[in-house]
Design a protein around this nucleic acid. Structure first.
Length: 512
RNA sequence: GGCGGCAUGGCCAAGUGGUAAGGCAGGGGCCUGCAAAGCCCUUACCCCCAGUUCGAAUCUGGGUGCCGCCUCCA
């Protein structure tokens, strides 16, 4: 049993080996903070959070670093539009990022370096590149001379000769007189390490004049500063493979003479109608738009939606897909809440302990199901396979719960059920899927002993009123007056009271 | 044009040589006055063609279709 990961660098699944025993250093490319995060971002960070959780569960000590790009043309444009400043825009959307991620149960990184706080490291790196002859200044900019680095293209598997500069259609092919400023690049594939400041833009002093860093260089500087010269895992969206990660490698490896990362992992895109969700296409939905009114989607639905596909494959964001995930989550949630709902009835004496329901305090056996979960996750984080295990546990628990509600008892051993529940809670937590009751009160047994249930909802019937109506219905039914009996049941149902007729003429009830 | 990826039931999705996990949605039956719950049953020629093999969704070759990247990107 050993973890294997698909490494973009080699295009193979490889056994995972750490640089230092028991320690994993991970760098994740973060967002440019100029707008709210959309579902593409959600997927990426849910996936990497799950990878991190799994590594932790396997016993690794994980150091996880993720940057914020807080200087960029898009941020400046937004600031200009709003009559605001780059810093204000960046801070606002950084805050929004944290809010969104917290809802999705994404653990905080160990460090969040900012581009604007890494200027010294960036300048040092550029300087070293310049000294080694890989960077050249031009009109206040500094460029990386891509053709000097023979290994350029090793991550994305391309050769400069085979690429068609400008094929994406986004870069104006430079023709004399067309652009207002001819690029001073010596080669179209060269990229900017440092950009000369335009009037009025934030700028830092440097040996090349007032300016600001290019995009790619910040990650090279941050990895080096926060994690060291070689890290275990570098992750990000598959759209970053080229040129961003390729450029990071070119920058870092020339300076250090060492590999930047052992494993490169890339997540697949979120599609809409078969096309990539992106800002430029305008087909994006922000995380908050999906989770806030009017959708009021539980954040775990989004998490589940993402984890139901293998992380490298594209997923299609559609209404039916979300509806399906929503129902799936309901099933899982019922299982996760099982202990809270039925623990008392099953005689779990520690139900009111603070640690009840805390996965950290649970001990799960190495059952067949846990092994299956592990085998799935060990295979390049096969979360759909892992989820199949969770569903088996949850569905089983749901069945037991139904039997407890409807029959009042279950054949299954209480401790066996407890083991199942704890296994589910623990494994679900590895995937970041969690649910706890909104509040636990002494009187919140939703089932089993109606007399102790307190009706607190506005306009709800008291227990005595309910009992009385149930009695009336019993009488009607005994008199074969089923119309009246059904009328009373419907009336109660409208108030959220569910009646269950049992063999022997006993009617149980509970609030839904 | 170059590089890479994908194609499995109504929808989603695992599975990389031995005869198809799981989720969602549906159908039928038992039980029940009706419900609820439970139980049982139920839907796949794995894009096409050729090949290798005792045996292929899984390997090889050739098609077809879709997607991503080729300096904004998660």
């Amino acid at each position: 049993m050993a973890l294997k990961l698909y490494n973009t660098l080699t295009r193979h699944k490889e056994p995972f080996e750490t640089l230092e025993t028991g320690q994993v250093r991970v760098y994740c490319c973060g967002v440019t903070v100029y707008d709210y995060c959309h579902l593409g971002h959600a997927r990426s960070y849910i996936v990497w959070d799950t990878v991190r959780r799994y590594l932790q569960w396997c016993g690794y000590q994980v150091r996880y670093v993720q940057n914020f790009t807080d200087i960029d043309d898009k941020i400046l444009n937004r600031a200009r539009q709003e009559g605001s400043t780059m810093q204000a825009v960046a801070e606002r959307f950084t805050q929004a990022y944290f809010e969104d991620m917290e809802r999705l149960n994404i653990q905080q990184a160990d460090a969040y370096p900012l581009a604007t706080h890494t200027i010294d490291g960036i300048k040092r790196l550029i300087h070293e590149l310049e000294n080694k002859g890989y960077a050249y200044p031009a009109e206040g900019d500094v460029y990386y001379a891509v053709r000097r680095f023979p290994q350029y293209g090793k991550l994305s598997g391309r050769k400069l000769e085979e690429m068609q500069a400008g094929a994406s259609g986004r870069v104006a092919i430079e023709e004399p007189g067309v652009s207002d400023r001819m690029s001073p690049k010596k080669d179209p594939f060269d990229f900017a390490l440092w950009k000369a400041a335009k009037p009025g833009e934030p700028a830092w002093e440097s040996p090349w004049g007032m300016g600001r860093p290019g995009w790619h260089i910040e990650c090279s500087a941050m990895v080096r500063q926060c994690l060291g010269e070689t890290i275990d895992i570098h992750v990000g969206g598959s759209d970053l493979v080229f040129p961003h990660h390729e450029n990071e490698i070119a920058q870092s490896e020339v300076v250090t003479g060492k590999s930047l990362a052992r494993y490169w992992l890339h997540n697949g895109m979120v599609n809409v109608g078969g096309e990539k969700m992106s800002k430029s296409l305008g087909n994006f939905t922000t995380i908050r738009d999906l989770l806030n009114a009017p959708n009021l989607l539980e954040p775990m639905v989004l998490r589940l939606f993402v984890l139901q596909a293998q992380y490298r494959k594209p997923i299609d964001f559609t209404d039916p897909a979300i509806a399906s995930a929503q129902n799936s989550w309901l099933t899982l949630k019922e299982g996760l809440l099982f202990g809270y709902q039925y623990g008392e009835q099953l005689g779990w004496s520690d139900r009111h302990d603070v640690s009840f329901g805390d996965p950290a305090c649970m001990r799960i056996s190495t059952s067949e199901l846990v092994k299956r979960f592990q085998i799935a996750m060990d295979d390049d984080f096969n979360t759909p396979g892992a989820l199949a295990v969770l569903f088996e546990l949850a569905k089983d628990l749901r069945r037991e719960g139904n039997l407890l509600i409807h029959a009042g008892t279950s054949e299954t051993d209480s401790q066996a059920l407890r083991q199942q529940w704890q296994t589910l809670v623990c494994l679900a937590q590895v995937l970041g899927l969690e649910s706890r009751p909104p509040m636990i009160t002494e009187t919140s047994h939703a089932v089993a002993s109606p007399a102790t249930v307190s009706g607190t909802g506005i306009g709800s019937l008291s227990d005595a009123q309910i009992e009385s109506l149930v009695q009336q219905r019993q009488s009607a039914r005994q008199a074969k007056n089923f119309a009246e009996g059904d009328r009373i049941r419907n009336e109660l149902q409208a108030q959220g009271i569910i009646l269950i007729d049992q063999p022997g003429g006993v009617t149980r009830w509970h609030r839904s």
